[in-house]
């Protein structure tokens, strides 16, 4: 579904992503892990078009999307969430989601349709569907859900979920992992899930890829990755992440 071929990204002299290649199969959840600053978020920024690649190419459903603008990539069916939620604080919860439904999906052209879509998505995600709830009343978990709701309302076929679980307590993490699993199984959306806490991720992903210093150091089944000496070394001194 997604074929990433040897992409690189440098910021000035700093090589954030160095010739990373991977494929995402339709219907799977691919976990993308690595320590802070390993280039996970940059990979997302390159796929979603927020940053331009310095080298390499990205193909989505057979189509070369390298260098397309973010809005075009969104219309082709790729959506992303942000590690740190970035809602429009001056718009209501429903407005936030309706907006992305309206502009994110070419097929929708009436505001009513967009609002219905937004309500449906909010219900799936487990957020209030009324038009009065303000974004500012949501807690950390609520804001993470809003990120997800906004991404889903654009009707993606591939969801790039960026560290969805940072800042959540254990129970909230389990819930969020279940939600992602639900999105995959019930809605049929393929997911790439970036995370640095490995524990919860390992439970639901099909495959894992590990980045370190902008390079891919391992790829495989969760069980293989958890026992990979290179991965353990990278995470050494961060034992908690392995738990």
């Amino acid at each position: 579904m997604l074929v990433v071929d040897s992409i690189s990204k440098s910021f000035g002299g700093f090589l954030a992503v160095n010739r990373v290649s991977f494929e995402v199969q339709e219907g799977e959840i691919l976990g993308l892990i690595g320590p802070n600053g390993s280039g996970k978020s940059t990979v997302f920024n390159l796929i979603s078009g927020a940053h331009k690649v310095t080298g390499g190419s990205i193909r989505f459903e057979g189509r070369n999307i390298t260098g397309l603008t973010p809005d075009k990539i969104c219309h082709l069916g790729i959506a992303r969430t942000f590690q740190i939620p970035r809602p429009f604080k001056k718009l209501s919860l429903l407005e936030n989601v309706t907006l992305s439904a309206y502009f994110g999906d070419d097929a929708l052209r009436s505001p009513e349709e967009a609002r219905d879509r937004a309500r449906k998505v909010l219900e799936i995600i487990g957020l209030p569907t009324d038009d009065r709830t303000e974004v500012t009343t949501l807690g950390a978990a609520g804001l993470k859900k809003l990120e997800l709701a906004r991404a889903l309302s654009t009707q993606p076929r591939l969801l790039l979920a960026d560290e969805s679980l940072g800042g959540l307590d254990h129970q909230e993490m389990e819930q969020a992992a279940d939600t992602l699993n639900h999105i995959r199984t019930e809605l049929g959306i393929t997911i790439v899930w970036v995370e640095h806490i490995m524990g919860v991720l390992m439970r639901v992903v099909d495959r894992v890829m590990v980045l370190d210093y902008g390079e891919k150091i391992a790829e495989g089944l969760p069980k293989e990755i958890a026992n990979d000496p290179k991965v353990i070394e990278v995470y050494l001194g961060n034992q908690q992440a392995l738990a």
Binding site: S48, G49, A50, T69, P70, D71, C74, H75, A79, R80, F82, R86, F88, L99, S100, F103, G104, D105, R150, T154
Partner: peptide, 8 residues
């Protein structure tokens, strides 16, 4: 940035 990622 967010708006363009939401298809605008």
């Amino acid at each position: 940035e967010i708006m363009s990622l939401m298809g605008v």
